[in-house]
């Protein structure tokens, strides 16, 4: 049942040391503010799941919150490497990072299987390549009807899903628009969830009959954090700040410059810093 709370309270209560956490968002609606709160609260030994780990995972990894990563594409989209992720894999800094590496199709199927309450995901994939050689979770099953060999991997069942959405109503019903990614599946597959939103409104606005809504009884904490997806974007509110994604390349390249940035912009600040990126009212598409 949804509870409207503060961000620190939500992370305090939902995310514990050693948890498996999925902070999802497929380039859109990435829960940056919530990720920063996890860093501030100093969570350790997390297993992070995400199809496309980007800046916020780079930050969590560089700050030593993470011991294991389940993923399918880890980079700074259109820019290049995630330097903190690479430093962890190539040099074990600040700690060793265990990898469970998949393809996008596998990850998307595993979230869907988790949401559907199934133990595993079955799909046509992983044919001929080397990923099954380095990931023992990738198995083959035979279709009992046609004899076709298919790929199987375990369903994702995170302890916690953390997502950002455009808005929720006062009861905690959450509405998502635009590039949807796997957020609905991630929340439904998880035991607990934290949803940050641009705004909490009295009633969800006029919407398509098939709008993507997570009913209040499927979500845990709902927190209003305007701008909370920045530098990713919130469709209808603010655009992706491609310039910051490019700047991150220089900030994160060295351990010192990374730490300085984290200290100034995360450790000594709170979620209110995101408000300056927000638009108070929904704008027309740019």
């Amino acid at each position: 049942m949804a509870r409207i709370s503060s961000l620190s309270e939500a992370i305090q209560s939902a995310v514990r040391d050693g948890d498996t956490v999925a902070l999802e968002g497929f380039t859109h609606l990435i829960p940056h503010a919530a990720g920063h709160e996890i860093v501030r609260q100093g969570r350790k030994e997390l297993t992070l799941i995400r199809m496309t780990p980007d800046l916020i995972y780079d930050q969590l990894i560089g700050m030593g919150c993470v011991s294991r990563l389940v993923f399918s594409w880890g980079g700074n989209p259109g820019v290049g490497s995630l330097h903190r992720l690479r430093d962890a894999i190539e040099n074990g800094w600040p700690q060793k990072l265990e990898l469970e590496e998949h393809s996008h199709a596998a990850m998307a199927n595993a979230y869907e299987a988790g949401a559907a309450g199934l133990p595993c995901a079955i799909f046509r994939g992983y044919i001929g390549g080397d990923l099954p050689k380095v990931n023992s979770k990738i198995k083959r099953v035979t279709c009992p009807f046609t004899g076709e060999e298919l790929a199987a991997i375990p369903a994702h069942r995170p302890d916690v899903a953390v997502i950002h959405a455009q808005r929720a109503d006062k009861a905690g019903n959450v509405m998502i628009e635009g590039v949807l990614g796997v957020q609905k599946e991630a929340v439904l597959a998880s035991k607990r969830s934290v949803v940050t939103v641009e705004e909490i409104v009295d009633e969800l606005p006029e919407r398509s009959l098939n709008a993507v809504v997570l009913p209040h009884w499927t979500v845990g904490h709902v927190v209003e954090v305007p701008g909370g997806a920045w530098p990713s974007y919130a469709q209808g509110y603010y655009p992706r700040n491609n310039g910051f994604y490019k700047e991150w390349d220089a900030i994160s390249r060295e351990r010192d410059s990374f730490h300085t940035w984290m200290k100034e912009n995360v450790l000594s600040k709170g979620p209110e810093v995101f408000a300056k990126y927000a638009r108070k009212h929904r704008m027309a598409a740019e």
Binding site: F26, T27, H28, M51, P77, G78, V79, H104, A105, A108, N109, Y111, E112, F123, R124, G125, G178, V179, L180, G181, V182, K184, E185, V212, Y233, Q235, P239, R240, N242, Y245, A285, E286
Partner: peptide
Amino acid sequence: PLSIGDGELCETALTTVSVPEMFRYWLQ
């Protein structure tokens, strides 16, 4: 787009489906 999911792609698309649907129905 700089990223695979920039708002520009969504705003100019005929429709936008979830990522599991993309990989299951459309690709697979």
